[in-house]
């Protein structure tokens, strides 16, 4: 397999795992805008253990997930009291604090970054992504998944139905944080080098958008969202240079003929985010759509004439 394709599969797998981590929080009604923070915790935990204690990769991957998960649970309890804007801000602030702490910790390389031994090939993150996807699909079929979705829809009624809001939210947020951490650990071992700047606020925003645009009603959403936006730049390699010249001229600049950078990908992500929120805020993949595609849906007699 060519290195190019191997690189794409590795980053795709890492993004899918990351997206599932954020999905678990969002599906239970918690907008987690601190994804990069949890990914950084996982990446640095795995990297540090690997570089300093020489632990085998299997253990450092696990450790990355566990440490990020514990941090997630520790954060989930106090922020349970916050909702809406406050929750978004709290998770966002958490990620900034993590990045700041890493930058100021010499043992983690500070601003210099950190080399991570124990290289893993693309197959390993890919297997990881498949396992994580199966896990999340399974979780969504359980009563735990049902209560998560119920809390997303109506927290007060879920409580009256006997759902322990606290337990479900903390568990969903914590497992999600662990998955984000796992994606960071895979990243560390696949790229072999990590730096705090690689886990900035934009990363948190991108992954949340992958999840929301893919759709949060089913486990298919994050998979489709992450895959689409990871593969998009590959699709657009040919189209973009021309578009770039138009925009540069429009803004009063002089086209220099250089190849467009990845900024373009994010312009498109932004446009899609705005368009989806205006037209189809539930995201691309909805439950109804999955039911239709899976041919399980029967039409109920007498249902057609009676709508509100």
């Amino acid at each position: 397999m060519s290195g190019y394709l191997a690189g794409i599969i590795a980053i795709l797998s890492i993004n899918v795992i990351f997206a599932y981590g954020i999905f678990l929080a969002v599906a239970s009604g918690q907008l987690n805008l601190g994804g990069a923070g949890f990914q950084a915790v996982g990446a640095y935990a795995a990297g540090w253990l690997s570089a300093n204690l020489g632990l085998p990769v299997a253990l450092t991957l696990l450790a990355g997930a566990v440490v990020a998960g514990l941090v997630g649970v520790a954060l989930a309890f106090p922020i349970l009291r916050t909702r809406g804007v406050y929750l978004v801000l709290a998770t966002f602030a958490f990620a900034e604090v993590v990045a700041g702490l890493i930058l100021n910790t010499d043992a983690l390389g500070g601003a210099m970054g950190m080399s991570v031994p124990g290289y893993v090939e693309w197959q390993v993150p890919m297997i990881g992504a498949v396992v994580v996807a199966l896990l999340v699909f399974y979780l969504m079929t359980t009563r735990f998944g049902l209560t998560m979705r119920a809390i997303h829809d109506d927290e007060d009624v879920s409580d009256l139905m006997g759902v322990s809001i606290r337990n479900v939210k903390v568990a969903a947020f914590g497992v999600g944080a662990a998955l984000a951490g796992l994606s960071g650990a895979f990243y560390a071992h696949n790229f072999g080098y990590i730096e705090a700047q690689g886990f900035n606020a934009m990363v948190s925003i991108y992954v949340l958008l992958y999840v929301l645009l893919g759709g949060t009603q089913t486990a298919w959403g994050p998979l489709v969202g992450a895959a689409f936006f990871t593969l998009l730049p590959e699709i657009l390699r040919e189209v973009l240079p021309a578009a770039k010249e138009v925009v540069v001229t429009l803004f009063g600049g002089v086209p220099d003929g250089s190849r467009p950078d990845e900024s373009w990908r994010f312009v498109i992500l932004g446009v899609l985010a705005v368009a989806f929120m205006a037209i189809r805020p539930e995201g691309l993949i909805t439950r109804t759509m999955v039911e239709r595609l899976s041919f399980r849906r029967r039409t109920a007699p007498g249902m057609k004439e009676a709508t509100e």
Binding site: T147, A150, V157, G162, R287
Partner: peptide
Amino acid sequence: MPHLSVVENVMLGQQS
């Protein structure tokens, strides 16, 4: 719960 199916809403009632 608007995004839950009929049977899922009823299963939510079994939660206790």
